[in-house]
């Protein structure tokens, strides 16, 4: 029974592979969380970082990460959903549509460092802005756009054709049908996709190194004037995000407590991304339930 033995060995190998992958994940997570948790404190999250002394926190980096994420989403979501609507509803099969599809494919496969270089060229040098939050957000938009376009297109395509026909047959224009029937029905899956994409943006660093920069000016959180140099809301200031911070303290930092700061930061980063994941699932399931609730 040679083939039987081979079969049993193969099954064993596949099971082993599955176990290896699961243990990689478990190992990574427990390492990050176990090592990181002891450094996370209210103090750590709310004190500004230090360039030379120990005991710095990640207040500004955390704020910058969320602020850049917010700006990116404000730009990328309308563009991406609009592109998705175009691809799902208006694009006719042909050369033009193929071209757009190729463009999405190219954008999606560009390494983030290349997008960062493009950002450096255009949003930093050509515009003369220098390292800015806005430049970072625009680079991340390029990075994020194809994901949102795909998610929106797919979600709109999965809305039953019946509903679209029902609306059109009532004498409603295509655009109004998209706005009032297709988008609401596709909303849960678009939202889930956007939140997952947000998690990716939150952890992205390479595209930000040369666009948003590696430093943050001294911020005054009481200053809400977006045009002031010290205001955290100013979009034309350099901003180091959490992910960039982890990289910079490890590769070019001078602080003595690198380990502590980066363990803590990594844990915060991973927990945030994890929360984005859970949030996406949770919101997705809630809205789906709401829509089909009374069934």
């Amino acid at each position: 029974m040679k083939s039987k033995t081979a079969d049993r060995i193969a099954t064993g190998v596949f099971v082993a592979i599955a176990i290896i992958i699961v243990s990689i994940l478990v190992g990574l997570f427990s390492y990050i969380l176990v090592n990181g948790f002891k450094y996370i404190s209210w103090d750590f999250l709310t004190t500004p970082s230090s360039n030379i002394r120990a005991g710095g926190g990640i207040r500004d980096q955390l704020f910058n990460s969320f602020y850049i994420l917010l700006l990116t989403m404000i730009i990328a979501v309308p563009l991406g959903v609009g592109g998705g609507i175009y691809m799902a509803e208006y694009a006719k099969p042909g050369k033009l549509t193929d071209t757009i599809r190729s463009c999405i494919e190219v954008l999606a496969s560009l390494p983030s460092i290349v997008i960062g270089m493009f950002g450096l060229l255009v949003f930093v040098n050509v515009t003369g802005w220098g390292y800015t939050i806005l430049g970072g957000a625009l680079a991340l938009t390029v990075f994020n756009l194809p994901v949102i376009v795909r998610v929106s297109e797919d979600s709109i395509r999965t809305v039953p054709r019946d509903l679209k026909e029902a609306s059109l047959a009532l004498g409603i224009t295509h655009w109004h049908t998209i706005k009032t029937v297709l988008l609401p029905s596709a909303f849960p899956s678009i939202l889930t996709g956007i939140i997952l994409a947000a998690g990716r943006v939150f952890g992205e660093a390479a595209a930000l190194l040369f666009t948003a920069g590696l430093s943050t000016p001294r911020l005054d959180y009481a200053n809400w004037n977006p045009f002031s140099e010290q205001s955290p809301l100013n979009i034309f200031r350099p901003a180091e995000t959490l992910a960039v911070h982890i990289w910079s303290v490890n590769t070019q930092g001078l602080i003595p407590d690198v380990e502590a700061v980066s363990n803590g930061s990594a844990a915060v980063l991973v927990i945030s991304v994890l929360l984005f994941n859970l949030l996406a699932r949770w919101i997705g399931s809630i809205i789906t339930k709401k829509i089909t609730a009374t069934k």
Partner: peptide
Amino acid sequence: ALRKEIGMVFQKPNPFP
């Protein structure tokens, strides 16, 4: 405008959600 005057009902009931 035409579809407002010539309405249609489909095989499968398709109410909006």
